[in-house]
Amino acid sequence: MLEQLKTLSYGDEPGLRFALKLDGQGGCSELTMAQLCDWKPQDGIVWFHFERDHPATAEWVAKKGGLDPLVAEALLAEDSRPRVEPVGDGLLIILRGLCAAPPEEEENPSEDIDLVPLHAWVDERRLVTLRDSGHYITALRDIRLALENGIGPKQTGELLALVADKLVRDLEPVLDEMDEEADELDEMIFQDDAGEVRQRLKLLRRRSVQLRRYLAPQRDALNRIEHDDADWLTERDKLRFREVIDKLMRFIEYLDSIRDRTAILHDDLSTVISERIARNSNRLSALAALLLPPSLVAGLFGMNVGGVPGVHETWAFVVIVGFVAITSAATLLVLRRMHWL
């Protein structure tokens, strides 16, 4: 199957990533920008994908797309929080998808994880999607591959459900990687550098919080789509949305679990650091106790005043050294019985 997939081209026209006309049999044909401007609902079901921040996109959405002015303004806005708003017989949708490397850079993908806002307008005859330039969403690429090879969605509702499904699907490897990193940090706490563990733990916790901040409203948005009364949403489409919502809820619970694990790991790390500090403090205290008798004797006999005993006796030094040795040994014995050493 992979050998039969076609090579895709992106962005041949300014602002337009691709424009597809669905044939209702799982396949599609490509449209140009000129054909895009002449499209009418009776011409068939279409999927237009634009760069949101390109001037050509703004011109088409605002003037040539036949969209409601409020819808056009929302599609071009910076707002990226997931939400769904019914407008007439269509839906204004903002979701988030995993950013991937562009096709020409797939051999050296970025290690950063980024959730890209996807703005969309969907009705019975068309799906219009927009994302910022410089970002690539694997979910859309996979659906276009399927369409160009005759195994894609046939109707608008099916296409929208597939987009939502693949947006959520692409999050699973990220969550698995985060869980593996939590396991690795759990093992590193008791054997590696605490500074490195603390830094990685902080990044992991921040990433889990950031992902959950977008996935929770995305779940609510998909739930609104499932319960919408649009005629072009079939029961099969709604069933698929329910499955996507269930999967998304599991991912959110997964993120909560990772966040709780990072809190526990942080407590464990703090405990390990406290134990190390206490152990080092005990060692320093024991060393100070061992050095106390010699320091006291040296201080007494080192005073530059008259009356210091043994100043003129040759045996005095030997006696003092013996006394220091005996007192140090006695101090060491006491510290061992007190379990300080």
Rank of each mutant, 00 (worst) to 15 (best):
E107Y: 13
A139P: 05
L115G: 03
E111K: 12
Y136S: 15
D112L: 10
H135R: 13
L91E: 08
V122S: 09
T129E: 08
V122G: 09
I94H: 00
V116R: 06
G90L: 10
I113W: 06
A101P: 07
P102Q: 11
E104N: 07
D112W: 03
C99Q: 09
A139G: 01
Y136W: 15
P102C: 01
T138N: 14
P109I: 13
R96F: 08
R96N: 03
D132I: 04
S133Y: 01
H119T: 04
R96K: 15
P102M: 08
G134Q: 06
L115D: 02
R125Y: 11
D132S: 01
I93G: 04
H135I: 00
L95W: 01
C99A: 14
E105P: 08
V122W: 05
D89N: 13
R125M: 05
A100V: 03
D112V: 03
H119I: 02
A101Q: 08
A120G: 12
E104Y: 06
E104I: 07
S133L: 10
R125V: 05
D112Y: 04
I93A: 05
C99F: 05
D123H: 12
L127W: 01
A100P: 04
S110H: 11
E107F: 14
P109S: 14
V128D: 03
C99G: 15
I113L: 13
L98S: 07
L92G: 09
L98T: 08
T129D: 00
I93T: 05
I93S: 07
G97D: 03
E107V: 13
S133N: 07
I113V: 15
R131V: 06
P103W: 13
H135D: 08
L115F: 01
S110W: 00
I94D: 00
E106W: 09
L130M: 13
A101I: 11
R131G: 04
R96L: 07
D123M: 08
A101E: 12
A139T: 00
E106V: 14
S110Y: 05
I137S: 03
D114I: 10
D112E: 15
L92R: 06
I137Q: 07
I137N: 00
L115V: 00
I137T: 03
Y136Q: 14
D89Y: 04
A120V: 12
D132W: 01
V116C: 09
P109R: 14
D112I: 02
S133W: 00
S133R: 12
A139R: 01
R125K: 14
C99R: 06
V116N: 04
L92A: 09
G90R: 09
S133I: 10
N108S: 13
P103V: 10
L115A: 06
L115T: 01
G97H: 04
E111V: 04
L118Y: 02
P109N: 12
H119Y: 02
P117M: 06
A101Y: 12
H135F: 12
P103I: 11
D112N: 10
E111D: 13
V128C: 05
P109H: 13
L130I: 10
T129P: 00
V116I: 13
T138W: 10
E105W: 09
G97W: 04
H135W: 02
G134R: 06
L118R: 06
R131Y: 00
L95I: 00
D132L: 03
V122F: 02
V128Y: 01
P109T: 09
A120Y: 02
P103Y: 12
